[in-house]
Design a protein around this nucleic acid. Structure first.
Length: 216
DNA sequence: ATCCCGAGGG
DNA sequence: CCCTCTGGAT
């Protein structure tokens, strides 16, 4: 099977973009948040957990620890109880406190706005940093590659890679920068509603004719 | 048994 | 590259 050229892949990506944007005009970040601090907390909690579950625990978390200064002083055991249902609760509680401490010590209590500074915070990897930059600060620094984006990019053959960093590189090659943040939202919405992990509904998919994995 | 807006450590 | 951390939904 001949490898699709970059030009052909970009054109197919553009067509996919147009149809998904039309299908999900109000695709957005589904993690409830009012500011960069809240989004940072919510995104750290979102690892291997549904956003719906995260949104169940964050209201109490934000009520008890409204700002980085409060979270930096939190007792880990109390925080563990609040975030317990999101899974990985010991790591997440420890990282949240460590993140808040670092934000206080290194950034005067403000969530930083660069990939390098964000990535240096405990519990903040490239994916989480991209979420914060794109959704709290409006900076298209990269593409958020979560489990949905990875699965859909693979099925649509927009990449042959499985490592999230390499998947992101490939997506950055075929989509224009100003689309990077919204691209993740579109793929995540589509992944939830149509291109599900276990039972993809190809018959209901608006881009099935552009998808090499489609069975219809 | 598999999946969910992963990160850190070896 | 691999492994571990974890609960809840389906």
């Amino acid at each position: 099977m001949p490898r699709e050229s970059l030009k052909a892949r970009r054109e197919r990506a553009d067509a996919i973009w147009d149809l998904l944007e039309e299908e999900y005009p109000d695709a957005h970040c589904a993690l409830d948040h009012r500011n960069a601090y809240e989004l940072t907390v919510a995104t750290i909690l979102s690892a291997q957990c549904t956003d719906e579950r995260v949104n169940m625990v964050t209201p109490e978390l934000f009520r008890r620890w409204p700002e980085p200064a409060d979270l930096a002083e939190a007792r880990q055991e109390e925080l563990e109880e609040v975030v317990h249902s999101t899974g990985f609760y010991r790591n997440k509680a420890k990282n949240l406190i460590g993140m808040a401490e670092a934000v206080m010590e290194r950034h005067g209590g403000e969530i930083p706005r660069t990939m390098e500074e964000l990535h240096a915070l405990p519990g903040v990897g490239r994916k989480t940093a991209n979420v914060i930059l794109g959704n709290a600060f409006g900076i298209d620094e990269g593409v958020v590659v979560d489990t949905h984006v990875k699965r859909l990019a693979g099925r649509m053959k927009l990449t042959r890679e499985t490592d999230p960093v390499k998947v992101e590189r490939d997506l950055m090659k075929v989509f224009a920068r100003e689309r990077w943040t919204m691209l993740s939202h579109l793929l995540i919405f589509h992944g939830r509603q149509v291109c599900a992990a276990r039972k993809p509904r190809c018959e209901a998919c608006v881009v099935s004719h552009l998808c090499p994995s489609s069975r219809v």
